[in-house]
Design a protein around this nucleic acid. Structure first.
Lengths: 254, 254
DNA sequence: GTATACCTTTACGCAACGTCAAGGTCAATC
DNA sequence: GATTGACCTTGACGTTGCGTAAAGGTATAC
C-alpha cells in the first residue's frame, strides 16, 4: 500500500503539512518521490510514523524522537526515564500553579465582601503573591505535597453553598475578632470564639486541621508584614491579638 | 526611586530584555524616557510589574494579563476561574502522559529480558501504543481517574527491588504459560498458576485488583491483534489460552 | 475537456523572550 | 580631558511545531 501526504495524514490523524515538515527536518522521509514530485510513503514509513507519533504523544520533542528512532543503539528506556523526570517536574509546577490560582480565587472572593475592592486591588495581589510564595512552600515542606493536593481537591469540589459559608465565616471572623480586640484579652471567651471561627474558616482550605499548623499560620500572620498589614488595617495590633488567641486556643506554648 | 531597565530587572528578578519586550508590546511602559533615550521606571511601574509577574506566575498569557491590568472593570475573578479550568485540563493531560511514560518504561524494561530486544523494538512500540490508547481509556472510564492516578503513584514509588520482582514475575508468567499450554487445559493446576502469576504481575501496575478488570484485560489480549501477536509469537493460541485460564481463575462467565 | 481534488514550494505568523551586533552614554578614575 | 568599563539603545535573527495562505502544477472522474 502506498500513500500520498494527505492519505497518510488521514490514516495517522495528522495534517499533510506535518508530514512535509517531518520530511523537511529529516524525521520522516518518503519512500520515494513520484515523477511529478509527489511524496510517496510505504509500509515502512507508516510503521515509523507510528513510532514517531507514539513518542510525540509522550510529549517528547521531535529532535529527541529523531535520535530515538534513527539511532540504532540508542537507549530508548533511558530517554524515557529522563523525560519522565521532566514531566514530574512539570507536574509539580503545575500543581503549585493550581494551588496558587485556587487560593487566589478563594481569597479574593472571600475577602471581596470584607473590604473595599478598589482600594485593595493592588495590595491584594502583593499579599497573595507573598503569601503563596513563602507560605505555600513552608506548608508543602512541612506537610508534604499530598496534604496540599488533598486540600486542592477540597477547593475544587466547593459548591456555591460552601462558598457562601466561607464568606460568611470570613466576615464573622473579622467581626468577632474586632469585638474581642476591644475587650483586650486573647484568653477571653469572645477571643477564643474568634479563634474557633478562624479554625472553621481554615478547615475549608485545609483537609487536615492540626493545632501546630494553625498556630504556625497565626505566627505567620505576624511575621509577614503584608499579612500583618491586612489584619491590622482597621486596628493595629489585631494580627498579634489573633496570634495570641490562636496560641491559647491551640494550647501552643509561646 | 527611579530605575533603569537593568536595575528594575534585578529588583524583580527578570531580564532587561523582558522589560524592553513588555514596553514593545505595550504591557509596561516606562514612566518616562531620559534625554539620552533611557527607559526610566518609577514606583507605579514597579507596582504594576509586580501585578504582571504575579499573573505571569499563574501561567496566564501576556495578552490576557494586559487585559487584566489595563481594563479598569475587568473581572479578575472570572479570568482566574477560567484559567483554573485550563490548568486542570492541562494537569489531566499531563497525568495521562506520565502514566503512559511510566507504563512504557515498566513494560519495555520488564519485557526486554523476555525477548530479543532488537527484534521487537518496533513492534513493542505499536503494542504499547495501542494498549495505552485503547485500554488506558477504557480503564479510566470504568474505574475513574483516581484509580489510575493511584496506580501511577505506585509505579512512581517502585524501587529497584520492585523492578526486579516485576521482571522475574514477567518471566515466570511466560514460562509457566508456555508449560501450561503444552498441557492444553486452561483449568489445569499449572494454567491456574500462570493466571495467578499474571495477577501478581498485574497488581504491580494496578493499585486495586478486581476480577472483572483482570478478565477484561485477558479478553483484550485476544481482541487486540497486536497484543495477541505478542502472546502468540512463540505459540499461536497462547493469548486465547491465557484468557481462558484467567476466566476460570476469576470465575468469570464466558 | 473541464471541474475539482490533490499535489508542490515558498514564506510569514504564533509566544516570549535569548542572544548577538553595532553603536551611544554615564560615572569614575588616571 | 581622556580613557575605561558598565550600562543603555535599536535591530534583527533563532527558538518549536506546525497553521495558513499564495501561486502554480497534476491526477482523476465525468
Amino acid at each position: 500500500m502506498e500513500y500520498t501526504v494527505q492519505k497518510l495524514g488521514r490514516l495517522a490523524g495528522i495534517s499533510a503539512r506535518t508530514l512535509r515538515y517531518y520530511d523537511e527536518i529529516d524525521l520522516l522521509k518518503p519512500a520515494r518521490v513520484s515523477s511529478s514530485g509527489y511524496r510517496i510513503y510505504g509500509q515502512a514509513e507508516v510503521d515509523r510514523l507510528q513510532q514517531i507519533l507514539f513518542y510525540r504523544e509522550l510529549g517528547i520533542g521531535l529532535e529527541s524522537i529523531k535520535k530515538i528512532v534513527t539511532g540504532p543503539s540508542f537507549d530508548g528506556a533511558k530517554a524515557l526515564r529522563e523525560h519522565r523526570e521532566q514531566l514530574l517536574d512539570k507536574r509539580k509546577q503545575l500543581d503549585l500553579l493550581i494551588t496558587n490560582v485556587e487560593k487566589t480565587i478563594a481569597l479574593t472572593e472571600g475577602r471581596m465582601t470584607m473590604t473595599d475592592k478598589e482600594k485593595f486591588e493592588g495590595f491584594k495581589q502583593k499579599m497573595i503573591e507573598d503569601n503563596e510564595k513563602k507560605y505555600g512552600k513552608e506548608i508543602r515542606e512541612k506537610y508534604g505535597d499530598d496534604t496540599i493536593n488533598r486540600s486542592n481537591e477540597k477547593l475544587r469540589n466547593m459548591t456555591r453553598e460552601d462558598h457562601e459559608e466561607v464568606t460568611r465565616l470570613a466576615n464573622e471572623v473579622t467581626a468577632t475578632l474586632a469585638e474581642a480586640f476591644r475587650n483586650g484579652d486573647p484568653a477571653s471567651d469572645i477571643a477564643q470564639k474568634a479563634a474557633d471561627l478562624h479554625k472553621q474558616w481554615l478547615t475549608y482550605f485545609w483537609s487536615q486541621y492540626s493545632k501546630e499548623a494553625h498556630a504556625g499560620l497565626a505566627q505567620m500572620y505576624v511575621d509577614d508584614e503584608r499579612f500583618k498589614a491586612y489584619y491590622d488595617e482597621k486596628q493595629p495590633g489585631t494580627a498579634e491579638f489573633l496570634r495570641d488567641a490562636v496560641y491559647i486556643y491551640t494550647g501552643y506554648k509561646k
